[in-house]
C-alpha cells in the first residue's frame, strides 16, 4: 500500500468525521431517552422517510433479535412516523428537513449520532426495509453474537444484501402495516452474485441478484452493491464511508477470509420489492435525493411501468438462516 493512498484515505475518513460533526446542526431532537441508550450494548440507527407502514414490523423484528435501543432520524416525513416513534419506550427520535443527499444519503447524521451516543457500543445501521439475519438468530439473541465478537476481538460483522421479491408482478404484492414483509416477498436469487475485490477499501464488491438480472442486465457494472458491514463496534473516528458498503478505518471491512476459510457472516433481507415501491420509485426518481441522482429509482420506475416479474423458476423461497447457510449466502464461521 502506497503511503500516498493511505494518507488520502485517512484524510477522507477525517473529512467525513468532521462533516458528521458539522451536520449535527441539521438534527432536531424530538425524543431522547439517554438512560436507555447508555445502558444498551447494541443499538439500531435508522433513517426513515414516510415509512410509517413499515415501522411496526421493523420494531417488532429487531426487538425480537434483542436490540436494546433504536435511534431514528426522521427525514421530513409527512405521515405519522414521528408521533408513532416518540411513543415507543425504546426509541429516541431526531428529525430533520435538510437534504438527504446533502448529508451524504443520511450517513453524516448516522455517523454523528453514533459518535455522540454510541461509543463503545455495537451499532447496527440498517434501513427500515432491511432485516438482519445472523447465524443462530432464531435461538440466540444479538447480544450472544456481539459478546462472541467481543471475545474474539472482532470489531465488525459483514453481511450481504439479499433482495426479496414476490411471485407475480411486484406492484400486486400488497403489504399491510405490521405484516411480515417476507410473507409477501418470500423469494430470492440464491446463486447469481458476482464478487470482486476492492483493494482500496479492503472490502469485497458484491453485485448481482434480481436487480442485476432484471433492471441492470444491459449494464451490469451499474447494478447496486450488495456488500454491507452494518454491525460495527463504534469507536471515536469510525465512519460509514459509502452507505454501509464501506466503513473506515478500512480494517473494519475485512469481514472475509482470503486464505480459503470462512468467517462468520450474515445477511440483510431486503424487503424493497412490494407494492409500496411503485409510487416511491416515481417519487424518488423525481426528487433525485438518492445515490447517483436516484438513477436506481429511475431504472425501477421505468422497469415497473412494464410491471415486471422478478420471480423465476429457479427462485428460492426463504425458510430460515440455516437454508441461507447451506446455500452459501452466509456462514457460521467458527461460531458453533
Amino acid at each position: 500500500m502506497q503511503i500516498g493512498k493511505r494518507i488520502r484515505l485517512g484524510l477522507r475518513r477525517r473529512r467525513w468525521y468532521i462533516r458528521a460533526i458539522r451536520k449535527r446542526r441539521d438534527l432536531r431532537r424530538i425524543r431522547l431517552r439517554g438512560a436507555r441508550i447508555s445502558s444498551a450494548t447494541n443499538v439500531v440507527i435508522a433513517v426513515a422517510r414516510n415509512e410509517h407502514v413499515r415501522l411496526p414490523y421493523f420494531l417488532r423484528y429487531y426487538r425480537d433479535l434483542g436490540i436494546e435501543h433504536f435511534l431514528f432520524i426522521d427525514n421530513g416525513s409527512e405521515d405519522e412516523s414521528v408521533a408513532y416513534l416518540s411513543e415507543q419506550p425504546d426509541c429516541s427520535v431526531w428529525s430533520t428537513d435538510a437534504s438527504y443527499r446533502g448529508a451524504r444519503f443520511g450517513l453524516d447524521w448516522v455517523n454523528w449520532l453514533a459518535r455522540r451516543y454510541c461509543l463503545g457500543r455495537w451499532v447496527l445501521h440498517v434501513d427500515v426495509d432491511e432485516f438482519f439475519v445472523f447465524p443462530f438468530c432464531d435461538t440466540r439473541p444479538i447480544r450472544a453474537l456481539t459478546d462472541w465478537l467481543d471475545g474474539s476481538d472482532i470489531r465488525s460483522f459483514g453481511t450481504m444484501l439479499i433482495d426479496m421479491y414476490p411471485k407475480g408482478p411486484v406492484g400486486e404484492a400488497t403489504y399491510e402495516a405490521g405484516q411480515n414483509p417476507f410473507e409477501v416477498a418470500s423469494w430470492f436469487d440464491s446463486g447469481n452474485y458476482t464478487i470482486t475485490r476492492n483493494w482500496e477499501c479492503k472490502s469485497l464488491w458484491i453485485q448481482g441478484g434480481p436487480r442485476a438480472r432484471v433492471f441492470f442486465r444491459d449494464d451490469p457494472s451499474r447494478s447496486p452493491a450488495l456488500n454491507k458491514v452494518p454491525l460495527v463496534k463504534w469507536r471515536r473516528g469510525t465512519v460509514f464511508a459509502s452507505s454501509t458498503h464501506n466503513v473506515l478505518p478500512r480494517g473494519l471491512n475485512l469481514v472475509f477470509d482470503d486464505l480459503g476459510g470462512e468467517k462468520a457472516c450474515g445477511v440483510l433481507l431486503h424487503a424493497k420489492f412490494l407494492n409500496t415501491l411503485g409510487d416511491r420509485a416515481k417519487d424518488e426518481a423525481v426528487r433525485a435525493e438518492h445515490y447517483a441522482g436516484g438513477r436506481e429509482y429511475q431504472a425501477y420506475a421505468e422497469g415497473l411501468e412494464s410491471s415486471p416479474e422478478l420471480w423465476s423458476n429457479w427462485s428460492e423461497r426463504y425458510i430460515n438462516w440455516r437454508q441461507l447457510e447451506i446455500l452459501g449466502l452466509m456462514s457460521k464461521g467458527n461460531w458453533a
Binding site: L204, V255, G260, G261, C265, V267, L329, M330, N334
Partner: peptide, 23 residues
C-alpha cells in the same frame, strides 16, 4: 466449526470467504 473457519467450503465465494488468486 474450526475446519469451516480454516478451510471453508471449496468453490464458495461469498461475504465471508473470498480466497485470493492462487491461494
Amino acid at each position: 466449526a474450526t475446519e469451516r473457519r480454516t478451510s471453508g467450503r471449496a468453490g464458495l465465494y461469498m461475504t465471508g470467504r473470498f480466497p485470493r488468486k492462487n491461494h
